Simulated assay, not measured.
Amino acid sequence: MIRIRPASSEDLAVLRALETACFGRDAWGEEAIEGELAGVPATRCVLTAEDPEAAGDPCDVIVGYASLLAVDATADVQRIAVRPDRRREGIGQLLLDALLETARERGCAEALLEVRDDNTAAIAMYEAVGFAEIARRRGYYHGCVDARVLRLAPV
């Protein structure tokens, strides 16, 4: 059973490892992740997905993480990362649901996100909960892959 919990600075090394495993050259650096954690709770929500049945090493226990920026009426899903060997288990959906619940609790009327045009699994997950494309950023990822901008309203 996957458990969602708030991330802390103690998770930094594992979150950085997840970034590299999930996003390769698009991975955030340690400073970017620290910035997300530093914004909690004022404007940010950073969550981890844990598998309590996994071995004791934090890299085995934390199987995903997600980050949300919530300012005024708009929430922006910054990141959803699931360890590659744990994808297709519903972990990303659990994290997305938790982020959207946080957005609702904070009074956000809409949620936005960007996703690589070639990430069909993520796009399907987002569209299944009601996100719709509102724009494209041509060549956004290293000049060769478009970014889709998606919006969910109401949250």
Results as ranks from 00 to 15, higher is better:
25 R>N: 05
26 D>Q: 02
27 A>M: 09
27 A>E: 05
28 W>V: 10
28 W>S: 03
28 W>G: 07
29 G>D: 12
30 E>A: 05
31 E>V: 14
31 E>M: 15
31 E>F: 14
31 E>S: 14
31 E>C: 14
31 E>W: 15
32 A>C: 12
33 I>P: 11
33 I>N: 04
33 I>K: 06
34 E>R: 07
34 E>L: 07
35 G>A: 03
35 G>M: 06
36 E>P: 03
37 L>D: 06
37 L>W: 00
38 A>Q: 03
38 A>K: 00
39 G>K: 07
39 G>H: 08
39 G>I: 09
40 V>A: 06
40 V>T: 04
40 V>Q: 11
41 P>V: 02
41 P>F: 02
42 A>K: 10
42 A>W: 02
43 T>H: 08
43 T>V: 13
44 R>A: 07
44 R>Q: 05
44 R>E: 10
45 C>E: 13
45 C>F: 07
45 C>L: 08
46 V>G: 09
46 V>S: 00
46 V>A: 11
46 V>M: 08
47 L>W: 08
49 A>T: 08
49 A>M: 07
50 E>I: 14
51 D>L: 12
51 D>I: 06
51 D>H: 08
51 D>G: 12
52 P>Q: 15
52 P>I: 12
53 E>K: 15
55 A>K: 05
55 A>L: 14
55 A>W: 09
56 G>L: 10
56 G>T: 11
58 P>R: 09
58 P>V: 04
59 C>F: 14
60 D>P: 06
61 V>Y: 10
62 I>Y: 12
64 G>N: 03
64 G>D: 15
65 Y>M: 08
66 A>N: 01
67 S>Q: 10
67 S>T: 10
67 S>R: 06
67 S>H: 09
68 L>W: 04
69 L>Q: 06
69 L>Y: 09
70 A>C: 01
70 A>D: 05
70 A>F: 01
71 V>H: 10
71 V>N: 08
71 V>W: 14
72 D>I: 03
73 A>H: 15
73 A>P: 01
73 A>Y: 12
74 T>R: 13
74 T>N: 02
74 T>V: 13
75 A>P: 01
75 A>H: 00
75 A>R: 00
76 D>I: 13
77 V>N: 03
77 V>R: 07
77 V>G: 00
79 R>T: 06
79 R>W: 03
79 R>G: 07
79 R>N: 10
80 I>Y: 05
80 I>E: 07
80 I>A: 00
80 I>H: 00
81 A>H: 00
81 A>C: 03
81 A>T: 01
